[in-house]
């Protein structure tokens, strides 16, 4: 299996999708000639031409609406929003149009649209370029929400998203683009809505999404040195949410730490916590713990930024206290 970076894996998925299906389009700002600000669409314009790889003006609301229109008549646009923060000027096409068209037409009009974007803090990008907004989308019925961590999943989940007949919000992480991993060649599809156990352990379960899986895995190594074996789950998707994989792990460990990069309040960790309370109460030996970013905009200064974000020591401390106190 070839080793690729996360960005190369995504590029490979887009190339495969464009080659396999003439209805696939790639659209967005600076994605053609420039190849995308994170190089995810590099070389696609040269390979597939300007009818398939379409540079757009800086008009997120306009070109997302247009992508929806094209999708309703059989195209499969994969639209890049350069930063997730830019989705905020295009919430109407995402929330009122793409998410609801299938339902409002009772399945007579489908919107096979992928909105690729990147999010996350830790790069000193300041408050308007560092958010993790997955829950905003996950709260809207009709949108699937995927956030891969491993390069192989980035490829496989993007291919699944392109083949999906409804809108998928595909959240990449700006600090994962250079992450390397083995990536299967050719058609590689990882179904949406299936979490992955990336490390086995019996003392505590650490659940992360996107880059937070990296923190959980690093924390698990540290915990192991201290005699605690953590199981690590890469959630991979918020919608559909694979609560079952977490429940099964919890039956073994009885303890869970949820590691969420988004702000603390009303995030996915709160939802997962509530579901475990409702459905797995008897399996819980200890309260569910959340390690999240603080409820403040992300500060520019990187020491300040790091201070409000989840970190390995915070995850380790939470896991140890659960194991020691309960």
């Amino acid at each position: 299996m070839p080793e690729m970076s996360y960005a190369q894996a995504l590029n490979d998925a887009l190339g495969q999708a464009l080659a396999n299906d003439p209805k696939v389009l790639v659209m967005g700002e600076d994605i053609g000639h420039h190849g995308g600000v994170f190089a995810v669409t590099k070389g696609l314009l040269e390979r597939f031409g300007p009818k398939r790889v379409i540079d757009t003006p800086i008009s997120e609301s306009g070109f997302l609406g247009a992508a929806i229109g094209a999708a309703t008549v059989g195209y499969r646009p994969v639209v890049e929003l350069m930063w997730v923060d830019f989705a905020m000027v295009a919430m109407d096409p995402i929330v009122n149009q793409a998410a609801k068209t299938s339902y409002m037409s009772d399945g007579r009009v489908k919107v096979p649209l992928v909105i690729r974007t990147q999010q996350g803090a830790g790069r000193g990008n300041g408050a308007q370029h560092s958010q993790s907004l997955e829950t905003m989308f996950a709260q809207v019925p009709g949108l699937k929400v995927a956030a891969p961590f491993e390069p192989a999943d980035a490829k496989g989940m993007l291919m699944a998203a392109v083949e999906d007949d409804g809108p998928v919000i595909f959240l990449e992480h700006k600090l994962l683009y250079t992450r390397k991993g083995d990536v299967p060649g050719g058609r590689h599809v990882v179904p949406l809505g299936k979490a992955k156990v990336s490390r086995l352990g019996q003392d505590v379960t650490l659940v992360g999404l996107s880059r937070m899986v990296e923190l959980a895995e690093t924390a698990a190594k540290e915990l192991s040195r201290q005699g605690v074996e953590a199981e690590v789950i890469d959630l991979r998707c918020l919608v559909p949410l694979d609560i079952e994989t977490i429940r099964v792990s919890l039956q073994k460990t009885g303890r869970v730490v949820l590691v969420q990069e988004a702000h603390r309040s009303f995030g996915w960790a709160a939802e997962v916590s509530a579901r475990l309370m409702e459905d797995s109460f008897d399996d819980l030996k200890a309260p569910v713990r959340r390690i999240t970013s603080e409820d403040v905009p992300f500060p520019y200064n990187q020491r300040l930024e790091a201070s409000v974000m989840p970190s390995v020591p915070k995850v380790v401390a939470a896991a140890l206290s659960l194991c020691q106190d309960y």
Binding site: S61, G65, A66, G69, A70, T72, G74, N96, Q97, V109
Partner: peptide, 30 residues
């Protein structure tokens, strides 16, 4: 919605149908 008649949606959001129509037109062009 009545896609077989070419009616691709009335819309409850003012102006929201215009970009969608642009996309339908893009599809026709492609």
């Amino acid at each position: 919605y009545s896609p077989e008649a070419g009616a691709m949606g009335t819309n409850a959001i003012v102006a929201a149908g215009i970009p969608i129509a642009a996309g339908l037109a893009l599809a026709a062009q492609l």
